[in-house]
């Protein structure tokens, strides 16, 4: 890419006492990317984001936003939501946003705009402590949107929400993403990341395991599922083919992993030539979840 990165991280390391929470993390995020930040709990996602937002201090390493060393002025242009919504419980949603708009040097007229985007305009005058968890989270997103940020950092935005709340927040993120904003989204809900993100970074124990685009990850191998009257013959026939990596039966189906993309019609023709007629043949899309689990098991193997 020729455009300069929005964010670049160089060898960031952070200790909590003796525990190494981040281990030489380096990473770049380019404009328009929606980066999924993946990893099990305690892998260093929130630590990284906390450092990027000036809340935690790294022990070594540097990072830069928009090509410049970090400063509080830049943070005004970053919309951030960290773990749990943090507001003054005795103030209304509107009054809480008034404080944030003043900090960000954003006009107060933006408050109603962002409350509208997250659908909280009717409850703008209610005290924060009377909000449901979903509303609190929406207010946090509204706060992040103040000041027309160029980048959004969202840390587990659907944490603790019920299924309806999760869908609401996810739709909201998609809506925001469509405005062409660069987004860093930390989550352990993988299908969420898969649905929204263009790129992923996988962390484990503070180390970067993998970074790349989502489509790349999902394209790296192809899986198909088949069924036929004689399952054994089917399996045998397929294992003879060079493009087949592995086969395994699963719930009445045969799951076949291929090392390259082969058209299903091609497979069908091959099998027909061998006298096997399939009753079921479908391309199985590899999910990020499978990929993620594979990656972590490889690591532990």
């Amino acid at each position: 890419m020729t455009t300069p990165p929005v964010l670049s991280i160089n060898n960031l390391t952070k200790y909590y006492g003796k525990l190494k929470a981040l281990d030489n993390l380096s990473l770049e995020v380019f404009p328009g990317e929606i980066l999924g930040f993946l990893g099990p709990n305690g892998s260093g996602k929130t630590t990284t984001l906390g450092i990027l937002l000036g809340i935690l201090k790294a022990d070594s390493g540097t990072f830069s936003w928009f090509g410049n060393p970090p400063s509080h002025e830049q943070r005004k242009k970053i919309g951030a939501l960290l773990e749990t919504p943090l507001f003054y419980p005795y103030l209304s949603g509107y009054d809480n946003l008034k404080i944030i708009a003043t900090i960000k040097d954003a006009p107060l007229s933006e408050i109603d705009e962002v409350l509208h985007i997250v659908g909280l305009e009717e409850r703008r005058g209610s005290k924060f402590k009377t909000y449901s968890l979903g509303m609190k989270q929406r207010l946090a997103i509204a706060a992040a949107l103040l000041g027309k940020p160029e980048v959004m950092i969202l840390d587990e935005p659907t944490n603790g929400l019920d299924p309806t709340g999760i869908v609401e927040i996810r739709d909201l993120i998609v809506k925001i993403a469509k405005r062409g904003m660069t987004i860093v989204l930390a989550s352990h809900l993988l299908d969420e990341v898969e649905k929204i993100c263009t790129h992923v970074v996988v962390l484990e124990k503070g180390k970067k395991l993998h970074a790349g685009s989502v489509s790349e990850v999902l394209r790296s191998s192809v899986t198909i599922e088949l069924a036929a009257y004689d399952m054994e013959a089917l399996q045998q026939a397929l294992e003879e083919e060079a493009f087949v990596v592995a086969t395994r039966p699963e719930a009445g189906l045969l799951i076949v992993e291929l090392n390259r993309k082969v058209e299903t019609s091609e497979i069908n023709r091959l099998l027909t030539n061998k006298g096997i007629y399939v009753s079921h043949l479908a391309l199985r899309k590899k999910s990020l979840e499978n990929y993620f689990l594979e990656l972590l098991t490889e690591q532990h193997a």
């Binding site: 000036g54 809340i55 400063s71 509080h72 943070r75 970053i78 960290l82 900090i103 960000k104 040097d105």
Partner: peptide
């Protein structure tokens, strides 16, 4: 305890401010 200091800082207040 409300952790609003965090919110203030990540929204663009410097620690000194």
């Amino acid at each position: 305890s409300y952790r609003t200091l965090r919110q203030n800082v990540m929204n663009g207040m410097s620690r000194n401010q």
